[in-house]
Design a protein around this nucleic acid. Structure first.
Lengths: 125, 125, 125, 125
DNA sequence: GTGGTCTAGACCACC
DNA sequence: GTGGTCTAGACCACG
């Protein structure tokens, strides 16, 4: 079930973002154990070293913590997870607004485009 | 007036995006001459090679064209510019929707965040 | 009363150092029985295997000895304990001097910093 | 001139510490360019990947910064360097005091040992 | 030339 | 079994 990593962004960052997303939307519970580095590597079809880097990064931003010989776990600090969710939303929305402004789009245009696209590409929501 | 290029994205892509934005919102008119590579390089504080690559990229996507010995000009094909504008908006909104969905945000949350941030960071709009 | 083992150093080495410290400053008397592996494991909140390794290490450096079926005991060789104390101090001070020199600190600076920190963090001494 | 990395600590952390020390004591000036990853790797006899990690870490703690395609430079923020010097000293002295206390050494003992060792091992200072 | 990423495969310490 | 480090060597994008 190897996923694709088409974006120009490094794989490890894409993975970090994906995992943050999954954690933030509850696909992993607070304190839950993530797949082992080797398993995750197989699952997403990348080298274990790359997953290692991803997990290190998650630990660095205190979203996960590793216990020696036991595995890597989502932080059980629910406040941290709430803040992460907020941070992710704010940063994405900020970047989006910045881009839109840079291209001189009006809020009305963007909202209209949004509504059209949401109907098309997110019917399952 | 050297700008910052803090993002992890390559400088030349950041410049391409910025120029596309300026063109699309009319800071450069159709057919208008862009600054020379050297001037642009000085203006934004990067290596002329980088600007060279930017202009090549703009040409590749038929947003600008270079005339030997005369310089690089925004395309005068206004239809192309209209399409570019549309493309940029659609691609950005699509990516944005994708990210938001991946993190399990609801449309209401996003809109609320949007409104808060717009008030704060885009007062000049 | 699980302790924290935040350092990058292996838990078992941290425990060895802590026990050496306790032995050397007399928290355990010469010949005194150390807690059983299981009790110690519970007390400090680590895996019994880890304590097993700690006790082996203490035995290797002839600071403790285990008697089959009876437990692990601090050596009753008081000369050994005196030497251990000396060794520990010398090695720590040596390493400290080395680090300070490597960073170009003068003795005066270090002593001043020492005095400030001692007042702050070691009031109970 | 390959150095040895005997300590149990990872090579990359030893290198980070060594470089911090060199920077802090002025072996590298603020804003000075560090050797390229490949050169440094040869110089210290490790793999370029390891040096890469070292430089990333230096950047993470804002002690160095990398400029794309140009190299890695000591930060020119002299305030940062002063703070780094202070941080390094405080953290080392704190750890030292902690260890000494854990082993029940008195300040007098430590100072005496210090003076003896300083005379022996640091005559060049 | 520079730094950045990725893979493959190894070895280690820890639990 | 787990994560952590290191090497070797490759490829890429950038300046």
């Amino acid at each position: 079930m190897a996923a694709e990593f088409a974006s120009a962004q490094p794989i490890y960052l894409q993975l970090v973002q994906r995992l943050c997303g999954q954690i933030v939307r509850g696909a992993y519970s607070p304190g839950e154990r993530l797949p082992s580095i080797r398993d995750m590597a197989i699952e997403v079809g990348v080298n274990p070293n790359t997953v290692q880097r991803v997990y290190s990064e998650l630990e660095r931003i205190t979203v996960a913590e590793t216990r020696r010989g036991q595995g890597t776990f989502v932080t059980s600090d629910q406040g941290r997870l709430r803040r992460l969710r907020e941070e992710l939303m704010v940063s994405h929305v900020t970047a989006f607004l910045h881009d839109m402004r840079e291209m001189g789009f009006t809020a009305e245009e963007v909202l209209q485009c949004w509504n059209e696209l949401r109907a098309l590409s997110l019917p399952e929501e």
